[in-house]
Design a protein around this nucleic acid. Structure first.
Lengths: 186, 186
DNA sequence: TTGACGGGTAAACAAGCGTCTACTAACTTC
DNA sequence: GAAGTTAGTAGACGCTTGTTTACCCGTCAA
């Protein structure tokens, strides 16, 4: 029997936004369909367009709802390389980067959301990271580190629990720490 | 008026394969349609399926036709970091990696070709590179370097001629060289 | 009680995709 | 010259996509 559905505009809107966030973060933009979101949010498809406009706009709102690079950067500068290394080794291990990183590793090359990803990566990752690096070429060094994170995510999604974490975790973290240090060194 | 078309099976097959290679290398898998390939190759769509089966199989044949990581690895070990740095700074500057690298930077997260990319990246990049690295953890170190190349390609495609090459090229090459050295160091 | 407002729903829409079928016409073989 | 083989073509097929339309019906003010 059909449950009587509550008439709860804000609640429904939030359920849709949460579902979209989860799905985009797991599958990327193109693999997520409106029908998949509606099923996950237990809401009618038409409501997605009614509340958010187009799929593109919904995606933009999901990314905008994300904060800056999650807490990883809030650390003294000398600990940053190790912290990022652990992030790559652990967080990426469970495919649990946020929607911004997922957009970089699963949905690049989709022209529809090119500008959105571009702006969000800059404001959520590149610029905060560059701001923490003293000395010249801060943006270049932040870009190198971001490239490493991005590429690691791509390979991780390709090979699952292979390669990057098949030896003991400590060896991986140690290696990545040195690489990040090379990215940041003046 | 319509030119009389030669009946040239091998020629047509090659035109299709070349066009597909060019397009896949520029746009990635999903953005390339069968109709786009047929137009670029100036051949009828049905012929693509006739000669290559499915789009997926055509893509696999394009990747298989590519050699190993193009000549970049054929260099003494101590010159490898700088060589890769120049490759990333220059070759990626013009979006001219081959179809294999493009698949990594524009078409990851497409389940349809997951296995194809996986196998090809391993055999064309990871394993040849690991084979050139003496000492333990060769695969891990090759993976780190590949992650850097991949991520650099992704960011490059995102920001165009920005970030990674906005300062003088020499600074970029110098920086990347150090990072690759950190990837390869025992 | 009535009437409008608005959240929710089902169904259809147009467009694009990969793929396939039926046909034409050029070359080869006898 | 007739018959058969085969490269090439046009068009449609079935499916999925994002998006929109037309319609319900609970809620609440008058």
């Amino acid at each position: 029997m059909d449950e009587v559905r509550h008439r709860d505009r804000e609640g429904t809107r939030r359920r849709i936004l949460d579902a979209a966030c989860r799905l985009f973060a797991e599958l990327g933009y193109e693999q997520v369909t409106m029908r998949l979101i509606s099923a996950e949010a237990d809401a009618n498809i038409a409501l997605i367009n009614r509340y958010f406009g187009t799929k593109r706009e919904l995606f933009a709102e999901v990314l905008a709802a994300q904060g800056r690079f999650p807490g990883v950067l809030e650390v003294p500068e000398e600990e940053l390389p190790r912290r990022l290394a652990e992030y790559v080794a652990d967080k990426l291990r469970s495919n649990q980067g946020g929607p911004v990183l997922t957009a970089l590793t699963r949905s690049p090359g989709c022209p529809e959301i090119h500008e959105i990803i571009k702006d969000r990566v800059r404001s959520a990752i590149l610029e905060p990271m560059a701001a923490r690096l003293p000395g010249p070429d801060a943006l270049l060094r932040a870009t190198a580190a971001t490239a490493l994170i991005t590429g690691a995510g791509t390979l991780r999604q390709l090979y699952g629990s292979g390669a990057l974490d098949s030896p003991d975790r400590e060896a991986v973290v140690e290696r990545l720490t040195r690489v990040f240090e090379a990215c940041f060194a003046p």
